[in-house]
Amino acid sequence: MTGDVWSFSENAAVASEVALAAEGLAPAVQGGPVVVEVGRARDGVRGGGERLVLQGCPQDGPAEALAECISRAAKSLGPAIILVGATREGREVAARLAVKLDVGCLPEASRISSDGKTVSAERSVYAGRVSATLTSPLPCVVTVRPGSFAKSTGATGTVRNYDAGTPEVRVRRLGSSRRETGSVDLKSAKVIVSAGRGVKRKEDLPMLEGLASEMKGALGCSRPLSSDLGWLSEEHHIGLTGVVVKPDLYLAVGISGQLQHIAGMKDSKVVAAVNTDRDAPIFQASDYGIVGDLYQVVPALRKALSARH
C-alpha cells in the first residue's frame, strides 16, 4: 500500500528522532514524511516534510486525548505507518492508536524498514540478550526506542491544519512536579560514569559527578538509584527500562551488571568497571576492570587523571 509515514512524540527531542525515522521510511511506501503536532507546531521539533497540526486537542496531552485526536486525523487521511516515540506517555498513545485504528503494532523498534506491503522492525527482547526482527502488515503503528535514531535536521515543509475536535478525557491531572534531581542528556555524552548500588549514600554522588566532569562526561545510573531511591532523575537511568546509550567510554561504578542494565550500554565503544566483586557479571561485559572499593578507586582515578603525563 502507499501512504504517508507519520511521526509523533509529545517529547520534542524524541519527536525529531522519530521524524528522521519517518524520512527514511517514506520512500518505501511511496509517501512523504509527516510530522504530527498537536495544538501547535513546536519550534524545537525538526523533521522534513509536512507538518500536520491537529487543532482542538489539548497540547500537553494527556495521552488519552492525544491518541483520540491522532486517530481521528488518521481515519480520514490514511497514513501507511505511524511512528510514535516509545516514552512512557508515547506508549499509551501508540497502544490506544493501534486499537482505535484496528491495525497492528510493533514495539520498541531500533531499526525499521518496509517493502511497501509490510513493515519490519528490529527490537531487542529477553532483557537485551536477543535481537528480533518482527514483521506486520501495513498499515501499522510502530513505537520507536528513543536514542535509536539521530535527530532530523530536515526543514519544515507545508503546514497543514486539521481540526480534530476536543476529545473527552477521563483521567484528571491533579498536579505535576518536576523531579528535583535535574535532567541530563546522556545520549550525546561521549563519556558516561554510571553509579550503582555500590554507592552507599546520595551524598557520595558528587564524587562520581566530579570524576565524570573531569573526563568531560556525564553521570548515569542503574535503575535502583533513580527508581527505587530517587537519588537521580529517570533521565539518568540506563538500561532496558531507561535510556540506551552508546558513549565512547562507559565506566560502571558499583554496578553488578545484570542483563537489564547491560541492555542499555552494551553498544558503548569501550566499557570499564569498578567493583569489589571479581565475579560480578559487569566484568564479563567490560574491556577493563578494577577489582576494588569505589571509595578508594574513584579518588585514585581522579588523582591519576590530574597527574601530568
Partner: peptide
C-alpha cells in the same frame, strides 16, 4: 484473529570485550 506479527529472525547479541583486569 488480530493483526499478525511474524518473527523474522532472532539472534544473540554479542559484543566482544577485552576483559582485562588491571
Amino acid at each position: 484473529g488480530t493483526h499478525s506479527v511474524t518473527i523474522g529472525s532472532m539472534f544473540a547479541h554479542s559484543t566482544d570485550r577485552k576483559r582485562i583486569f588491571l
